[in-house]
Amino acid sequence: MKRLSYVLLAAWQGFWRNPVMSLASTLTVSLMLLLFAFFFATDRGLQAAVGILESKVELGLFLEDDAKVSDILALKARIEADPAVARVDYVTKDQALARLVAIAERRPDLAIEDVGPNPLPASLEIKLARAQEAARVGALLREELGKGVVYDVVDNPSVVDKLLTITRVLSIGGVAVLGIMLFVALFVIVNTIRIAVHARRDEIEIMKLVGASDWFVRWPFILEGMLVGALGAAASLTVLFLASGAVTSSLLAFLDILPVSFGPTFLAELAATVVGIALVVGGGGATWAVRSHLAK
């Protein structure tokens, strides 16, 4: 107990012995953690968006009005055999018209006049199990053009491609920026602890002289580093929670009407990761700083 309180007190005193340096490193750590949290949240949001969009990727085949039903069903069976395809729905001309009417009733800006003979084509709607294969399946379907059944292929996977590209760029860029920030934070913490060690070098010398173990000398400084990390985490999480409402709404607006959800444990996960990183960076930096001094 006495040892524990001694170590805790020494760490606390060490922090305030050089407040400018300690607060500077706390600020650096909290900035790094804020950046981390930003990338963490953005990456999560984009991944959720990609997931939703992928589940919505569809290919459509517009069918000739005079195609035989037996040919259509044979084509449907062939497409369903492809492992990348989840489901194929056959939409007849009448069903297509019924859908358009239903949409028009909900949209005041659209009005269906008497359209005479049904101008809408029948179609096959193809839901994909694996969105990445949209291009291959699309090319395959295009081979059916001009064989008397299919007159047009509609595929629009570019949205997914773009989102995947954004996600990739963001995570690579994020990792790079975070790496630099991590380096800066470590550097500042190492120097803060070095100064703390230097300020107490007489005390350390006597501690070692009377037979204190290396760990006994080390712990106050490691705790001081972890204190810097913990305060940085607290600061960044405070900013994060204060700003989270505005950020979330603007992020949702950015992703438009997609029903993106981060999941119920997201905030707890984010907070735990931020605190974990802070403690590891603080403690690790301090261990590094003390190491060279104790080797003497």
Partner: peptide, 14 residues
């Protein structure tokens, strides 16, 4: 007492 504290001795003993 410092010499005793840093070598892990406790209150009364110190």
């Amino acid at each position: 007492a410092f010499a005793l504290l840093v070598t892990g001795h406790s209150g009364d003993e110190v």
